[in-house]
Design a protein around this nucleic acid. Structure first.
Length: 379
DNA sequence: AAAGGGTACAACCGCCAGGCC
DNA sequence: CGGCCTGGCGGTTGTACCCTT
């Protein structure tokens, strides 16, 4: 037995809206509002349309101040960055782009942006195959005992600590999912604006963050602490609108993750990244170990992962991050999709960084926990 | 000029969460 | 507390338009 339809399909009109229908709907809503009941609305105004159809028509087309087409480069960047950060949560992404609807962005992504990125990726792959190899580096920081590890952590005194360097161009959702752009293309015209946006989005002042470890304000939701500054006031709404839904189903613990839960299944390719990240941040911040669950691998098992990898790879090309060092220290570009199903691989793909030690295993041994530390931006 | 393929976008479908009774 | 209803959301489809051959 399926679910009862919201309306009688036989009695409602489908297909494109006529100008008359548009005018009727628009006039009514502008005068009376929706009345809080979309299902009843079409009957009220004599439209032979499903209530949901009316709602969509209004939200996506008739609503004032809706922009169509003509996406700017900055909007492209925001969409790409947020997609990598939070996945296909179009409503959240749309909330950051005034005048844009989730449907519009979704269409734009599916029809143009994705191809644009993938096309660039392929070009870069071809070009990179010809390039000379890049010597990997082990960067020493602050002391001889400090080593960068993937994810921006530092091994200090045999413990991994996390820090955020000054002005990192990263997105960090409260859950901790980061997008790192360590090597932005100098020709990337909107880098500054994007960076500002991302910092706003993150809501915390990264540059101060590592100085605040001793007195960081933490936000608590369902007993999980998010180490971000909740006291900032600027762009609070912008920030709130983005993260509210992320906090809506906050992680309780890694061990409590259950891939069979409906929430997990729906958000498997987005929210769980944040869950992992949250725990990593917590650990880095509070310096206590978090034991990864046996089921952690399930977190990574999502249907869209490969597509995301492809997109991420494309994004790197988009940003000009063509110097990539994988865990073995070899230089190259993206691996092909079939090879990139582990997060270990992803780390080298998503966060190519010459500062990451090529001696990855050593770093891992020193790290107090396993992957995916690279979910945190690293410089 | 016409046909076929590709693209863009509006609209629909079905699932899910949350509110209400 | 459980079922129903509705709104919200992301994925998918349909179709008009454009481009290429």
């Amino acid at each position: 037995m399926g679910r009862a339809p919201c309306c009688d399909k036989a009695k409602v009109k489908k297909g494109p809206w006529s100008p008359e229908e548009d005018a009727t709907l628009k006039a009514y809503i502008e005068q009376n509002g929706t009345g809080g009941n979309w299902i009843a609305l079409p009957q009220k105004i004599g439209l032979k349309r499903c209530g949901k159809s009316c709602r969509l028509r209004w939200l996506n087309y008739l609503r004032p101040n809706i922009k169509h087409g003509g996406f700017s480069e900055e909007e492209d960047n925001i969409i790409c960055s947020l997609y990598i950060s939070i996945g296909s949560r179009w409503s959240i992404i749309a909330a950051q782009l005034p005048g844009r609807t989730d449907n519009d962005i979704k269409n734009y992504w599916n029809t143009r942006l994705k191809k644009k990125l993938l096309g660039k990726q392929r070009k870069e792959q071809a070009a990179a195959a010809k390039r000379s190899n890049l010597k990997p580096q082990i960067l020493k920081i602050e002391s001889d005992h400090s080593l960068m590890v993937p994810g921006g952590g530092m091994i200090m005194n045999n413990q991994t600590q996390y820090y955020w360097p000054d002005l990192p161009a990263v997105i960090m959702a409260p859950g901790g999912c980061l997008v790192n752009q360590p090597q932005l293309d100098p020709n990337f015209k909107d880098q500054e604006s994007l960076k500002n946006f991302l910092i706003k989005l993150q809501g915390a002042r990264f540059s101060d963050y590592h100085h605040q470890l001793s007195n960081t304000t933490t936000a608590t939701a369902n007993n999980v602490q998010y180490p971000f500054d909740v006291s900032f006031s600027q762009d609070q709404q912008l920030y709130d609108s983005t993260i509210t839904s992320m906090l809506a189903s906050p992680p309780t613990s890694m061990n409590s993750m259950n891939s069979s839960s409906t929430t997990a299944s729906r958000l498997q390719d987005t929210h769980e990244y944040n869950i992992i990240g949250a725990n990593m941040i917590i650990q880095g911040l509070e310096n206590y170990p978090v034991e990864p669950s046996h089921d952690d691998h399930l977190i990574y098992n999502n249907n869209n992962q490969q597509q995301r990898l492809d997109i991420i790879n494309g994004l790197e090309s988009f940003y000009g991050m063509d110097q990539m060092v994988n865990k073995n220290g070899s230089t190259g570009t993206t691996s092909t999709s079939a090879e990139s199903n582990s997060w270990e691989d992803i780390s080298s793909l998503v966060y190519p960084n010459p500062m990451v030690s090529h001696d990855y295993e050593i770093c891992q041994q020193h790290s107090t926990f396993e992957q995916p530390a690279y979910l945190f931006g690293h410089q």
